[in-house]
């Protein structure tokens, strides 16, 4: 009878992490940037229909990079969890922190228990009633949660994007300035990303109950020109 080879747990975890990281690094990055009225998310996305950024709840947005079907599954799970909680208790009780914890549980379990880890990184952004209440959570393929304050970058070359953002971000950006700052960090000094290959959405405090709004490519083009 054949016995499976012994693989050290450290090695197994490392292999899985490498696998997930490779998948994520292939994808294009996205940034979330805090501006005076909320949070704007700028993603490099050539597709006009397969979204990376979407609405989860009144004040919460979701952004994912990596394998589309995997982060989309997480997105739908998030919408469901948020809508159920809002129905069961109150709309005010739905918050990004609790959702981030649920995502962390799910990603962590899949990382250790399933055949393959999810090749995704996700970002949850929640816009507060005032700027002090803005929150962002960055979740890794293995369930690690990192909370970010003013800006976040996920996906391929996220480290480089984050460094560029740290140099250019300030706390008095308006929406247009936040989009150009985010875009500059995303494209870096050598590249130019056209408006048609960007997906931009904002969580704006002034938008009524549902803060999420997509910024159409035509408007983005006007802003970045």
């Amino acid at each position: 009878m054949s016995q499976p080879f012994y693989v050290a747990p450290e090695q197994m975890m490392k292999d899985r992490a490498d696998y997930a990281r490779k998948g994520i690094a292939r994808g294009r990055a996205l940034v979330a940037v805090r501006y005076v009225d909320g949070i704007v998310i700028v993603a490099e996305n050539a597709s006009d229909t397969l979204r990376k950024v979407s609405e989860i709840y009144d004040r919460i947005a979701f952004a994912g990079v990596g394998k589309y079907n995997e982060f989309d599954q997480l997105r739908v799970a998030g919408v469901r969890a948020a809508d159920i909680k809002g129905y069961q208790y109150s709309r005010d009780d739905v918050d990004a922190r609790s959702l981030a914890n649920s995502y962390a549980q799910m990603l962590g379990t899949i990382f250790t228990h399933e055949m393959k880890p999810m090749e995704v990184e996700i970002l949850l952004a929640e816009v507060g009633l005032d700027p002090a209440g803005d929150q962002m959570f960055h979740l890794l393929y293995d369930g690690t949660v990192v909370d970010e304050r003013d800006f976040a970058a996920i996906g391929g070359d996220a480290e480089g994007v984050r460094t560029r953002l740290a140099e250019t971000w300030n706390d008095s950006l308006d929406l247009s300035a936040a989009i150009t700052t985010g875009l500059a960090a995303l494209s870096g000094p050598e590249r130019d990303i056209p408006a048609t290959e960007l997906e931009v959405a904002a969580l704006s405090r002034g938008n009524g109950r549902r803060c999420f709004e997509r910024i159409p490519a035509s408007q983005v083009a006007d802003i970045i020109d």
């Binding site: 979204r51 979407s54 609405e55 989860i56 739908v76 919408v79 469901r80 809508d83 809002g86 129905y87 549902r210």
Partner: peptide
């Protein structure tokens, strides 16, 4: 009515 509102919003978010 509440369920109807939720369903319209839920559909919109899930389906995009």
């Amino acid at each position: 009515v509440r369920m109807f509102q939720l369903q319209l919003e839920h559909y919109e978010k899930v389906e995009g």
